[in-house]
Design a protein around this nucleic acid. Structure first.
Lengths: 200, 200, 200, 200
DNA sequence: TATTAAGCGAGACGGTACGTCACGTCTTAGG
DNA sequence: CCTAAGACGTGACGTACCGTCTCGCTTAATA
């Protein structure tokens, strides 16, 4: 799951955490971003919207950054692609899944906000780094599966290619500030699969 | 240059702007990021470090976001690659120039900060959008030159490919929070040139 | 005793109150004040120190103010002075008893805290007013006994004189923030008894 | 003046403090106490009422306690009684001046609040201690003048008697939570002057 | 040469969000 | 009905930062 949760799930004595609070808070974050932009995502505004108290939020996510990451992860989380016997097909699924997720209202600016917050913190590879790794892991998986299967050239640098797969959609969103579209997905699929294909 | 400057350079009456202030402020921003992280880049801290007053900063850049963009642009600005007669060679120059720029201390987190600030503002395509376009324009140029020359396939989507070229370094920096390296550059050069090459 | 107790002592069904809780809580309050000052007297801190749960405290004293009053009363409670046939001697007993009580560690700041809490509440003459009246009642008694006996002038305003007797020690403690001492007691005894004496 | 002010009056460079802010804030405190009680004296409420920002308040008084003391001092400050050639007359002036000040709306609860806040802080003899000393100093002065003049017995303990003079009005207000009245003043004047008079 | 518009450092200002803390209530599981 | 543990809503706290403003001063181009 997302950024460090203060109390681990091991039920102890005392009143248990109210699960509805978690959901309500994350929804409130996404809704606020979608409706009024990142600037409206104040801890107070989130609390008000979720009908929850600020301490209840801070009990779960000790920092605004952690909250943003958790909200992002609730919409753009780890992926699992079945073995389709074809790297290109699997790659397309990954990218189209991400495209759909980024297209949901608010998710675009939320991702930018998460990156901005992560930059602020500067803590090298904190909660955000772990989230980033989780999000990219399935891309690495299909690459390695492709290599094992034989339809991906074994001489590629998996990490670099994974970056090349993940980067364009996010960069279009955050770096160019425009929504990624099907053309971009098609181009990534075409270029990457053509270039890493074992067929030539 | 970056975000709207309040007084255009057309000399008027009164005391002229002190050019040293501009330089001192931008340097102070980069140094602060390099030494203490983005969180330390407060307008007050910048003023203190640059030995300059806050109004002197705001006269030049009306917003913190504008200042950050100007600082980024002072380190990672527009590029101009001569016609080498070979798309692959020109592509490599673009990427290696960016790699060098991103490797300078502080520039990595500064880029992340610029993106974060742009996200916050939410103003669709403001000063940041223009900066982003300036930075990516040379990549488009070499692609179009390659198409004209004939060593780049004419059926590609220029914009999408430009995104695929620019994205990986920035994403490695900002999205994965690790420094881009030569391997990543090599991989981008190899994959992109192989895939867009007109030779097959 | 102090402030309204939620359940009157009339034994009902169910598990009876644990008497040790009462004592432990009041002791915890006084100890905390003595050791770390009034600011450390948090309901949570009291509960932790007394090894008792918060609801157990609130069942007994519905408000922090009530708890403070109860703690104060446990150390500085009503007094009973026997008829010694001499107003001056009885007055000295009252004052020396109070002096001793105020000298105990923590009691000084506890009194100030009670007054502060009463001020905050603003509720004119609530639990605190009753406590205050209980504490001052014996002074009125010895004054009235002295008038009846004939060694106190009958033309004094009993209430005003009682205030003059009670005020100095408390004010020294709370208003001047220094411990009252024997000199102050001697002065009060001397001045008051000299002034109200029927002998001249 | 009241509790430590952060910047001393020695005009330096930069924008000077706005004197109206000081006045507006202190008035807002007193008005809020008078109208809605001590509980309404929130830093936010004060800022709102005074049409001033919270930082502007904290620049002047680093703590809520300091602010309360300053507000109290603005209404109940040091006194200066001319030499009337008669201790009893001077004592009456001191007490009647205080009685009038305590009678102003809000001042009663404000005094209680100051004492409560001082208790909380626990800092032995901080800003409050100094205020208390300032307020009591004139009483010591008239006692010493009386001794020098010869109409006050020289064998009294000046400090103890000063406490006996100052205590009753404040204690009536804060300890008994009722307004002091003329009867109390008369009693204090009568008892103290009778007891310390050099005539017998 | 005097004027004057605009620059300059310093720092207070209003506004707004942050993250923390305490109060008093409520909810669990167990005695 | 009590107990301990601990989450909950409410709401104030004091701090930090942004972007504006007001001082008194300096600096050059113009009149």
């Amino acid at each position: 799951m997302a950024g460090k949760r203060v109390r681990d799930e091991g039920r102890g004595p005392g009143r248990p955490r109210d699960e509805r609070v978690d959901r309500a808070v994350l929804d409130a974050v996404v809704d606020l971003v979608a409706e009024k932009g990142l600037g409206a995502v104040t801890m107070d505004a989130v609390a008000l919207r979720a009908e929850v108290s600020k301490p209840a939020i801070y009990r779960r996510w000790p920092t605004k950054q952690d909250l943003l990451i958790a909200a992002a992860e609730s919409r753009v989380g780890p992926l699992s692609v079945p073995d389709l016997g074809d790297f290109r097909a699997e790659l397309r699924i990954v990218l189209e899944t991400r495209l759909a997720a980024y297209g949901a209202p608010g998710v675009d600016r939320l991702m930018a906000g998460v990156i901005g917050a992560a930059a602020e913190a500067g803590a090298v590879r904190g909660a955000y780094g772990e989230y980033s790794a989780r999000v990219m892991s399935e891309t690495r998986n299909i690459l390695e599966r492709g290599i094992a299967r034989g339809d991906v050239r074994p001489d590629i640098d998996v990490r670099a290619v994974a970056t090349m797969v993940a980067a364009p959609l996010v960069f279009r969103l955050v770096g160019e500030m425009e929504p990624p579209d099907a053309t971009l997905v098609d181009t990534v699929v075409a270029l990457v699969s053509r270039a890493v294909s074992a067929q030539n």
